[in-house]
């Protein structure tokens, strides 16, 4: 009995010490010389970690990286408020950045930062900057669709009845709907959403599920981001019968959303944070992004991924990405029409 109690004591002690070590690691008090930077990353470790590692090498600053889902990390930052231990937030989508920005938790960064990125992809109030671009497309199975849609509005027509897949809970779809509301008005957006719902659109939770469903022939086309065709193909380890299509230039369906980064206002390490932002938006890094992730670079002149048309020729609609933060209204609308 005694031995057992001692054993339990030893284990408990070890755990406490182990825990204390973590506590020590977690805290990063502001010092004159920045040694560590904490970043919440909504981008997957797999894709972004090598870039972070390279920057660590260059700057000599250690990164504490917290990987997670962009929206969950945004929710977490909102919950943490001014107590957030994060210095930077790298998000998969502008919506999550907008939510944090709207809560006033981001700091503005100077004009000198990220100066190669096109202004179109920087928040109007300069609280965050785009890092990579992701075009909204319709993925489709060649042959299954006789006439390709020319506008998102076409998808509510009988020709596409029961053939379209959407992912209303997905942040990129919501960003698109937000843009739809902002550009064409809430009434139009509501009509379109109701139309697509009554046209028998199939609801998915993930973009990749839509692409897989197209490949399997369950649906003919779906609203996704452009890079899912490669992602699904890589995951399945084979070629898939899915291609990306663009609507006519300027159509709201061709929205180019961005992954982006913002620095938290509560952080005391803005110089180091901006240095990291500059690194991520430098031409060399951007070229590497395109090769690795099949996403678009936001610097003009950098080659577009694979065989896709370049960013300019897509004719992405003139949308203030900074205004995509108003997802609350989008959410209410989606709830109202019964898609959420």
């Amino acid at each position: 009995m005694k031995k057992l109690l001692i054993g339990v004591g030893v284990i408990a002690g070890a755990l406490v010490i182990g825990g204390a070590a973590w506590v020590g690691m977690g805290s990063n008090k502001a010092t004159d010389e920045v040694k560590e930077l904490t970043i919440y990353s909504g981008r997957s470790e797999e894709f972004i970690a090598p870039f972070f590692a390279e920057w660590e090498q260059e700057s000599g600053i250690k990164l504490n990286i917290r990987y997670g889902d962009s929206a969950e990390l945004a929710a977490q930052i909102l919950e943490e408020g001014k107590n957030s231990p994060a210095d930077l937030f790298l998000s998969q989508d502008a919506g999550s950045l907008g939510a944090v920005s709207a809560a006033g938790l981001f700091t503005k960064f100077p004009d000198s930062a990220a100066n190669k990125i096109e202004n179109k992809y920087i928040a109007g109030d300069r609280t965050w900057v785009g890092v990579t671009g992701r075009a909204r497309v319709f993925a489709y199975r060649p042959g299954a669709v006789t006439t390709l849609p020319q506008s998102v509005a076409d998808l509510t027509k009988p020709a596409y009845k029961d053939k379209v897949g959407i992912a209303p809970s997905n942040a990129s779809f919501q960003a698109f709907v937000t843009a739809l509301i902002n550009e064409k008005g809430e009434k139009f957006a509501e009509q379109w959403l109701t139309g697509i719902k009554s046209n028998g659109a199939k609801i998915f939770l993930k973009n990749s599920a839509i692409v897989e469903a197209i490949d399997k022939g369950e649906i003919d086309l779906g609203l996704v981001n452009h890079y899912y065709t490669w992602e699904v193909s890589e995951a399945l380890g084979r070629k898939i019968k899915v291609e990306n299509g663009f609507f006519l230039p300027g159509d709201i369906g061709n929205l180019v959303n961005v992954s982006g980064i913002g620095a938290l206002a509560t952080s005391q390490k803005n110089d180091a944070a901006i240095d990291l932002i500059n690194y991520l938006t430098s031409e060399t890094t951007q070229i590497a992004f395109v090769e690795d992730t099949h996403e678009y670079s936001l610097i003009s002149g950098v080659k577009s991924p694979e065989a896709l048309p370049d960013l300019k020729s897509i004719g992405s609609p003139q949308v203030d990405l900074g205004a995509l933060e108003n997802v609350q209204r989008t959410q209410d609308l989606l709830i109202r029409v019964g898609l959420l």
Partner: peptide, 12 residues
């Protein structure tokens, strides 16, 4: 989860 994730609507 959807409400948290897609709208940051913690109240809903």
């Amino acid at each position: 989860q959807n409400l948290f994730k897609s709208s940051y609507d913690r109240s809903a």
